[in-house]
């Protein structure tokens, strides 16, 4: 049983995720040590380090283990990670994990609704365009979606701010809630929604093209399959041809793509959260880059990698619900 688990598709995937995590951790470990400059600077910031006397400096290096062998340091680093000890943020003066925990919910608040809206609209239009392949409306949607796909997310955000925040004043342009908010429950929710609106529209627009294109090409593929022709030959109504036969099969790769993009979106939100100064993980990465807060930066990179792996796992685990071919094979009995 053990051996077969490792060679099973899911086992292979799990090994891959462990490797990805190891690579991400190693990058985290190696970069400050390989990069030109003083590693101490990377951990505490330039100004702090310059104030130290040589003795103090040596002591700090000793405490951090920087005077030990590279392998020893690597081992220490790895055990630290598994105890959720990612060091302290220079900018916030708090443990990195604590800052991350504050920021993560905000990112989910943006990503989850955007993903749902973008998936629903992208799939609907993609399937519609594929069904009308080659007609004028297909070409219009196709060029339209390729155009939306070509717009950088931050620029969409900037234009939305210029029009809807600055000129019209309908929506706030930064933050997740007003500073020093005093209102009650309902008002709080309303303010939250107002702050979310523009970023959610931005992320939706930035991801909708991908969902459209994937659905369209997947649907074109299934529409050309023999089973759709067979369904037509048995007299199935058009609605069933589209939904039960073509779309249901076409959605399998789309489902995987969307679930996996959950993880990637956390990182994709870097740009959008930066434009809207939204206090999520992405903005945190940007802030720690600007402040050269290296421990924080590494922490964010790590949490994003974990997010990607979690999303991949989710896709792998839930996929068999939709595709019977991926389920545990039943005993196939020979002879009818």
């Amino acid at each position: 049983m053990g051996g077969s688990w490792f060679s099973s598709a899911f086992g292979k995937k799990c090994i891959q995720y462990v490797l990805v995590l190891a690579v991400a951790l190693t990058i985290n470990f190696a970069l400050p040590r390989l990069a030109p400059g003083d590693p101490l600077e990377f951990f505490f910031g330039e100004s702090t380090i310059n104030e130290l006397t040589p003795q103090q400096r040596q002591q700090v290096e000793h405490e951090l283990g920087l005077d030990r062998s590279l392998w020893q340091q690597y081992a220490d680093f790895m055990t630290g990670v598994f105890r959720f000890d990612l060091g302290s943020s220079i900018k916030y003066g708090k443990p990195v994990t604590e800052v991350l925990a504050d920021r993560l919910p905000w990112t989910f608040l943006l990503v989850a609704p955007s993903l749902i809206v973008s998936a629903v609209i992208g799939i609907a239009i993609g399937a519609y365009a594929a069904w009308n392949r080659g007609k004028r409306r297909d070409l219009l949607f196709l060029t339209g979606m390729l155009t939306i796909e070509s717009i950088p997310g931050f620029w969409i955000g900037m234009l939305l701010i210029a029009v809807f925040s600055v000129s019209l004043g309908w929506f706030p342009s930064f933050g997740a809630v007003p500073i020093a908010f005093t209102g009650g429950g309902m008002e709080y929710v309303l303010a939250l929604l107002k702050h979310m609106t523009l970023p959610v529209i931005t992320i939706t627009l930035a991801t909708i093209g991908g969902n459209f294109l994937l659905t369209r090409s997947s649907m074109l593929d299934t529409l050309g399959q023999d089973y759709v022709l067979m369904a037509e030959a048995k007299g199935a109504v058009k609605r069933s041809l589209i939904f039960n036969h073509a779309l249901r099969n076409a959605l399998l790769p789309v489902y995987t793509h969307i679930t996996m993009s959950l993880g990637i979106l956390v990182s994709g939100a870097v740009v959008v959260e930066t434009v809207f100064s939204y206090p999520g993980v992405g903005r945190l990465l940007y802030e720690s880059v600007i402040a050269r807060d290296y421990p924080m930066m590494q922490g964010v990179f790590l949490i994003i990698t974990l997010g990607v792996i979690a999303a991949n796992l989710l896709a792998d685990l839930t996929y068999p619900l939709f595709d019977p071919r991926a389920r545990q094979r039943k005993q196939v009995e020979e002879s009818p």
Binding site: Q16, V20, F301
Partner: peptide, 11 residues
């Protein structure tokens, strides 16, 4: 599988 944008930023 690696998240590319943060990786690019960090590197």
């Amino acid at each position: 599988t690696l998240p590319f944008l943060p990786l690019m930023i960090v590197i």
